[in-house]
Design a protein around this nucleic acid. Structure first.
Lengths: 191, 191
DNA sequence: ACGCCAAGGGCCAGAACGTCTCTTAAATCA
DNA sequence: TGATTTAAGAGACGTTCTGGCCCTTGGCGT
């Protein structure tokens, strides 16, 4: 017989347990089958407790995602050159979530839009693009004038797009293509 | 009182009517509120008839989308220059399906991956990119060597990504940015 | 003209929803 | 420490959609 001490959790401890359960549900079933019921069951609590904190499916799912991103930060060390750092960054970015999970973002975007948020939000942009760019700027590898927000987002958009469309892990070759054929030509100073 | 003749439809006529109803539902309520019930009601038929043809929500929705795309082909006339034609092409591409429907593409891609196809397939590249590019090549507006498949796909990937993430109609300004900041610099011959 | 297939309607149990009530454990404060 | 407040957790509720399964009745083919 297992220890069935009726430990009643509260506050942050409870919230973390719920978000962990939510993440597990997302991993296991995906967003369209994501349900308050299942999260509550898995977390060993009741739906009322969830509704008290998150009004909608999308809000609890995105909270779970944000938590997961925080717990799995991407680190890109100084490799001495911009290109390799970008490839590594994109590799880590793609590896952090399997294709099915990246698809979540698109399934969720409709609900999120209804709530006035979007995955463009800063809280989802936790990858260390800033650091990589700063190093590249200080090395003179990139042209500051060319770093418009749209161009900076470009490689991530393309990686996500490819992963979601093919529903396969993206290859190193594809990442190299994105970097060499599109991103680098756009941001490196023309000779 | 409207004409309520009990005309019983069959085969293709019925199927088209259902897919039209499905499309209307998608337009009116979006995919997350998309339901067999509502489609059957709107089409004036029963759910059993739908289940007989499409096993899942996603399959009927994607069938409705594919039908809509077929019924609304994109035409881009010769505007005399590559840039304007690209902007128009992307505009039409984005306008053809409302934002909340584009997200479906990604759910569809999961099913399609299971069947070994993908939206990268040529049959989904029905928009007249080929024509536009050929005109551009004959005018000397673009450099043939730079037209790798990845670069050609780029503007569409970016438009889709933006539309899906923001769940808003993309602005002409954003399209112009994509063309001017990313696509044109990549494909036009450097002076 | 007749037989057969499928359209269309209705019924069912099951799942999840969103909202409640109630109890009781845990935190807060006197 | 004991009293008071807060909220966790359990459960009940009516509703909606699901995915089946019936049954009838209309239309098409032989």
């Amino acid at each position: 017989m297992t220890e069935t001490v009726v430990k009643r959790r509260r506050g942050a401890a409870l919230e973390d347990a719920i978000l962990d359960a939510a993440w597990s549900e997302l991993e296991a079933r995906g967003y369209s089958d994501f349900t308050f019921q299942a999260v509550a069951d898995r977390a060993g609590t009741s739906r009322a407790v969830l509704y008290r904190r998150w009004p909608t499916k999308a809000s609890i799912a995105s909270a779970a995602i944000v938590r997961h991103l925080k717990l799995n930060p991407i680190k890109v060390p100084d490799l001495g050159n911009f290109r390799d750092e970008m490839c590594l960054l994109l590799r880590r970015f793609a590896d952090r979530a399997p294709p099915r999970l990246l698809g979540l973002i698109f399934e969720m975007s409709q609900d999120m839009a209804a709530e006035g948020t979007s995955f463009m939000d800063d809280r989802f942009q936790d990858f260390p693009m800033k650091d990589v760019l700063e190093r590249a700027l200080s090395r003179g590898d990139v042209d500051k004038d060319r770093l418009t927000p749209r161009v900076v987002r470009l490689p991530f958009s393309l990686v996500m797009h490819e992963v979601v469309i093919t529903v396969k892990q993206i290859s190193d070759m594809a990442i190299a293509e994105i970097v060499d054929q599109t991103f680098l030509p756009l941001v490196t100073t023309p000779r």
